[in-house]
């Protein structure tokens, strides 16, 4: 059997190998996704995001267990940062998910960002599709620990859970633009710490100021290490899912995400094309050298590249 047939038949090693191909930009992964595209779109994709140390991995572990107890299969994509200096990475999200390793209904894949900004890796979407084709009911995407503007998850997930912890900042932090705007559900983790109620009130206030009231994100307190509050959180995720389906937002949201992904894909291919085609006369590096030496200005160089595309 080839990889595609093995994936369709539920072979774990085939899924693992295709994920590697997707990460390494090898054409095999793209071929398989193309051929089995009709099987995508069945899994429900949950994004887990929040600042470093908020407890994203632990929370993902507990939510996955709760879903397994309801007989759902689960895929987890856990993203950690790649060093911009060496290209290496320590992928440590599995440390909090040990009991899931040997559960045949769970597949966990750790990924480095490999230079991609925005909190995910470039291959995340392909990885979601492969797990979806494989037949997972739910797919979690755990982002890198985010700061204030890594919002790629909202372009990839159906529901985004924003994991917060008490004591990270005042109410002005909560009304800044950026990651606070992308949560569909807010989970205040480590809610046994001082300040949890205050954090909850600040987030509630911020949410009440939002114009769009069709879905008002719920805010719940959880203590992931003690497995406390998981049923409530999972309930909120299901409510959001129901809201998306019944309001027609799910279709719109997925269409918007596909549009974004399509544009990113085209942008990447155009960049590859430029690097390849421009190189026939002046390479991009040549152009850069000329601009640095003031033999050319940056706008003329851009024009030069555009002309190379138009030919």
């Amino acid at each position: 059997m080839n990889l595609q047939e093995r994936l369709a038949a539920g072979d774990v090693r085939a899924l693992a190998r295709l994920l590697t191909y997707a990460e390494n930009d090898y054409p095999e992964a793209e071929e398989v996704i193309k051929n089995l595209y009709g099987r995508t779109g069945r899994a429900y994709v949950i994004g887990i995001t929040g600042p470093p140390g908020a407890g994203k991995s632990t929370l993902t572990d507990k939510l996955a267990k709760a879903l397994r107890a309801r007989d759902n299969t689960v895929g987890i994509i856990a993203v950690d940062p790649t060093s911009p200096f060496t290209g290496g990475a320590i992928l440590g999200d599995r440390i909090r998910m040990q009991e899931l390793f040997t559960d045949p209904g769970v597949f966990i894949r750790s990924m480095g960002t490999r230079g991609h900004l925005g909190g995910l890796s470039k291959a995340t979407q392909a990885a979601v599709r492969l797990m979806d084709i494989f037949g997972k009911d739910y797919i979690f995407i755990e982002t890198v620990g985010v700061g204030q503007s890594e919002v790629d998850i909202v372009k990839t997930a159906d529901s985004v859970v924003m994991v917060m912890v008490p004591g990270l900042g005042d109410d002005i932090q909560a009304i800044k633009a950026g990651i606070m705007e992308i949560g569909d559900i807010f989970a205040i983790n480590k809610a046994d710490l001082d300040g949890a109620d205050r954090t909850k009130i600040e987030i509630e206030m911020m949410l009440d100021l939002n114009e769009n009231k069709a879905w008002r994100p719920p805010v719940c307190k959880v203590v992931a290490v003690e497995n406390s509050g998981m049923d409530i959180l999972l309930g909120h995720i299901q409510e959001h899912r129901t809201f998306l389906s019944e309001s027609g937002e799910l279709v719109k949201r997925r269409a918007r995400n596909i549009r974004n992904e399509l544009m990113d894909l085209v942008r990447d291919r155009v960049m590859e094309f430029i690097t390849r085609e421009t190189g026939k006369k002046l390479t991009v590096d040549d152009l850069v050298q000329r601009i640095v030496a003031k033999d050319m200005d940056i706008y003329s160089a851009a024009q030069y590249i555009m002309e190379a595309i138009n030919k």
């Binding site: 290496g88 040990q98 750790s110």
Partner: peptide, 14 residues
């Protein structure tokens, strides 16, 4: 850490 600094992706599980 040494593997990371050598440009590898290291999965560490505890």
């Amino acid at each position: 850490r040494a593997f990371r600094d050598a440009g590898m992706e290291v999965i560490y599980t505890g």
